[in-house]
Amino acid sequence: MKRLPGSEDMRAQARKRALEALDRRLADGEGGSDALGGLLSRDPEAAVATADAVMARVGRGTVRGHAGFRAAYVLAAAAALVVVSSLLTLALSGGRDVVEVHFVLAAPEADSVSLAADFNGWSLDTHVLERREDGTWEIVVPLSKGASYRYGFVVDGERWVPDPRSSILLDDGFGGTSSSISL
């Protein structure tokens, strides 16, 4: 059996190895390179597991019904976005049986915001909000009077956000809450 040199010398060898890896990358030129792949190796089983998880999640991109809503509800390990506020306004259409409801969510760091609700089968694709220049997202939805509706916002296709300004929050049966409006 052989013992390696003392710690200082080992560290010196490690640093030399690190510099050699950088030189190998430079030797590959200005194009792409995998020169550091040998030094910065990745567990192949973890790589496959991650790839499988990605494919499973993208395969759930379109959700239908309440079970689909459950698939869209993900507990974020780290809050990536700051949801400041939302504003719900009603434009009474006077005399008609339909009310145009204006849903707005302030989420300046979001890439996409969808409105998922019981009136669209909890779909992430049916009511996609549009981004405004000030970083808020909005959509106007005509809804019938005389009914109550449950809804929430889905940010970046994976984070469920109930309306923080809604005075009515209901247990959605999956450990979270959804908002409700009555017209």
């Binding site: 052989k2 390696l4 710690s7 490690a14």
Partner: peptide
């Protein structure tokens, strides 16, 4: 760097050195 390493074969040495090199980098 402080852990003594008993190398039974050269491959183990280089793996330990590569891990350390990666950390240093």
């Amino acid at each position: 760097a402080e852990e003594p390493v008993l190398a039974l074969e050269s491959g183990v040495e280089f793996q330990a050195l590569d891990r350390m090199a990666a950390e240093e980098l």
